[in-house]
Design a protein around this nucleic acid. Structure first.
Lengths: 340, 340
DNA sequence: CGAAGCGATTGAAACGATTCATTTTTGTGC
DNA sequence: GCACAAAAATGAATCGTTTCAATCGCTTCG
């Protein structure tokens, strides 16, 4: 059914080698032959078989990207950035979400290995990177995304999450909040851990304030809503007056729960800070103060680093990019009247 | 560098055919041999080369999915549904967004053809389906997603957008609005066209109401904000008292513009209806009334249909799935006091 | 006029897994 | 101990593209 170079060659009256040259190095083929072959390709509707190309080449022209959650706009932005930069360099991005499941992460990596991807971009679920070591040892470069590499053994493109935690909580203290709750989990996600660490480090300097940690199973709107309900169920004396959510989806969920109940107002009773600055944080019931991460730039930079590693092969230099997060203040911490 | 079956065979002291059998039909191989081969695979860290498999098999175990906008949560949900159902059947989904660019759509289809995908799921940008005809004639099944096939020449899984437009506008009329504006574009997107058609059909029955059409370049929050500003700039006497946005992203943008200006209140001055029921519509400044589409189910069903077509080969039966949209009423059309 | 040089073209080998017709081994019954 | 069937294992051929050493035709030069 499918047309192959062989048939194109027959149709054009040349050899298969020539057809291949027309496809890959038209400069070395005479103009006349090029046009004959092009005509034959057109006539027969020939489409290159990528599997055969890859088999010969030994590797594909794709990168594999594993994100934590495909439905989180933050990761969509990272993906978008990566995809564009990859395309500019003639590469394709295979994207998959680990969705908080270690086995899904493994499956995706298996898949990428079978596809012989030219490189792996990954925001790993936990801190055991042994699988990634093996992949790299097999010759496939690996770059950590949105996550630093503690010992610098991998290249990484990330944002200083500890600092992000600090500026979020410092802001809550600045506006006079004393009972802060950090909502987020699971702890196995390093980003969550670091944001909490940052929060704690600021609290250590504020003797009259306290920090609680309310863990969640994941970082979704649904979990946020559940957390919000837990807060509503608390004894009013125990309730926080400031919440730092590990990401904007959680913050959105918390906000929904609080607003729907009608019992507590934001920011008066409880100030709320999210993380990521997804587009939707701005259009929330009460626009959410958040910590901005340059999502698309992370994606772009990660691909750049990967390209460099792929280029350099064995003696690739590990690169660590750490972006600095920025606080975006909105109505969820500062009432509009105050804001102006 | 990479380990092949040949090396595994040597290590295990068997032939390559046997290794292949262990991989694909372990029942026909003796237990003892299976364990020898498995051990060799383990020891050498063998990973199947998918390119070689595909080359032999003639087609891949992937479907290609082309959506209109990867950053629209609606399409993310469709993708999620498709991905899950595909995975359950041992398939993988390659996703790409056409992003309102015909050439990007073409590029994606080129890519999918080169990869010899087992099927194409697509939400096409416009109504010229000739390219899709050719793909199908080459033996690759094609299913239209979120879009009907006018002449039923393609299988499709969609939602009745005309009806969606009707229920949205009927609702606006029901709450007493007379000057309705449909915000959305480009017209080349069939979904937009149909929603408008539905809106017009209802208006035709309401002699005292009028419908304007405010076109947009695409269906993003940004375009929505621009549209909102155009509305704010209008002569108050000309302004609509009800807006039907072609999707929730637009609605979100419009809402942002209106709320930020502080001049007009929603729903009192202007009632707003969106489309898709993305999660974020619920957590908007003013929760948005919207028309719900069963996104994940669309994705799942589309894969089911594709699997059936792939199975049936030439004598595949075309299937048309049309889901019925449902109105979800929220504060953007009915003030909370009224709602209770 | 023959040799050298040059660009254009050729075609066989290679990539790695799978298939399948054949061969080899094992097991059973007499 | 033998015949025969069933089970297990083999290995050459195949998929479609790319690569590259070899060849072909021409022109140019001594």
């Amino acid at each position: 059914m499918a047309v192959s170079v062989k048939e194109v060659a027959a149709e054009a009256g040349v050899s298969v080698g020539t057809v291949s040259n027309v496809l890959n190095r038209p400069q070395v083929v005479s103009e006349h032959t090029v046009s004959k072959v092009t005509a034959a390709i057109e006539k027969l509707g020939f489409v290159r078989n990528d599997a055969a190309r890859q088999l010969r080449a030994g590797r594909s022209r794709s990168f594999g990207l594993v994100v934590l959650d495909a439905r989180n706009p933050f990761f969509m932005d990272v993906t978008q950035g990566a995809q564009h930069r990859a395309l500019d360099n003639g590469y394709t991005v295979l994207m998959g979400a680990s969705d908080n499941s270690l086995s899904t992460e493994q499956q995706l990596l298996d898949l990428f290995e079978e596809q012989r991807v030219a490189g792996v971009l990954i925001s790993p679920l936990h801190s055991d990177l042994s699988r990634l070591w093996r992949i790299r040892e097999a010759g496939t470069p690996v770059v950590l995304v949105d996550r630093g590499s503690g010992d610098r053994s991998f290249s990484s493109v990330s944002v200083d999450d500890v600092e992000g935690g600090r500026i979020a909580v410092r802001h809550l203290l600045d506006i006079g909040r004393k009972r802060i709750t950090f909502v987020g989990g699971p702890q196995s996600i390093e980003q969550v851990q670091h944001r909490l660490t940052g929060a704690q480090s600021v609290l250590a300097q504020a003797p009259d304030a306290v920090l609680e940690h309310m863990p969640t199973k994941n970082l979704t709107v649904l979990e946020g809503r559940a957390a919000g309900e837990r807060i509503l169920a608390m004894d009013p004396a125990q309730r926080p007056d400031g919440i730092f959510a590990a990401n904007d989806l959680l913050a959105l969920g918390i906000l929904q729960a609080l607003v729907m109940s009608g019992e507590l107002s934001v920011p008066e009773d409880i100030a709320l800070v999210g993380y990521d600055n997804i587009d939707f944080a701005e259009s929330a019931v009460i626009p959410i103060t958040t910590v901005r991460q340059p999502a698309e730039e992370i994606g772009r930079t990660a691909v750049d680093v990967l390209l460099r590693e792929a280029e350099a092969g064995d003696q690739a230099v590990r690169e660590q990019f750490v972006f600095t997060p920025k606080l975006v203040i909105r109505a969820s911490t500062v009432a509009p009247s105050q804001a102006r």
